[in-house]
Amino acid sequence: MSGAEEHRDLLAAEYVLGVLEGPEREDVVRRADRDNALSVAIAEWEERLAPLSALVAPVAPPAALWQRVEASCGLMAAPLAPAPSRPAATSARGAKGRGFWDALGFWRGTTAVGFGLAAAIAVVAVVNRPVPPAPAPASSPEIPLASAVLAPSTGGAPAFVAEATPGKTIVLKPLERLSLASGKDYELWALPDGETVPKALGVISKAGQTVTLPATIHAPLQLMVSLEQKGGSSTGLPQGPVLWLGHLSALD
C-alpha cells in the first residue's frame, strides 16, 4: 500500500469510527463522492468495525416512532398495523400527494416505488432570490436566479442542490456522498408545472454536473432524479424510482 493509499485508508477508518468533526468530516463525505477508492475503503471499515455495535445494548424506541416513520415514508394510506393516532395533518398531506401523482397517470405505474411516490410531495426548500429588474451583471454570474433542493418525496435527506444559471442551464451539486450500484445511472427529468409528462434531461454524474435545458422547457418546474439502468431509461419516461425531487421557480 502506497503512502497515499495508506492515508486514504486511515481517513476512511477515522470517518467510520466517528472521530472526525466539522469540516474534516464533511470533507471526507465530499471526497468519497468523487473518489471511488475512498468510498470502497469506507464501506470496508464500516463492515470491519460493525461488530463493535454489539457493545451497545438494544433499547426499544418509543412505541409511536413506527407511525412517525410510516408517515414520513408516505405509508399511512393503508397501515399494516393498527394506527390509532394518525395525525389529521399527515393524512391531508398524503391525500394531496396522491392527487398530484395521479395526475401523472400513466408513467407513475412504471416506477418501482409506487408507495414512496404516492407520498406527499414535499417541496422541501426552494430558495428564491428576488428577480432582478435587469439581467444579472456579468460580474456576479455565481449568484443563481433560483435554486432547488432535491430531496426524497418522503422527506429524507436532500441529495442535490440545483441552481439556475445564465443560458438556461442548471448546475447540480451533490450534498452528500452518493453511492451508485454498478450497472445503474442517475437520470435527470424536468416536469414543468401544469404538465403531466416529464422530459428526459439525460444521465447525470453522481458528482454533479451542469445541464443545459432545451428551449421548449419553461420554469417553474419540478426537477427529478430517477434511478435507471446504465445509460438511462430507454423509453423516454422514468422506469426506475424517482429518488429525489425539488421545485425550481425560474430559469435564467
Binding site: G116, P152, L178, S182, L227, G240
Partner: peptide
Amino acid sequence: AADATHDAFVQVWNQAVRFDPSRGA
C-alpha cells in the same frame, strides 16, 4: 435519539435501492 432512529429508517426506505450487498453487509 428518536429523531436519529426515525431519520435512519426513512433513509433506509428511500435508499434501499442503493444498498449494494457486494460492497458490505
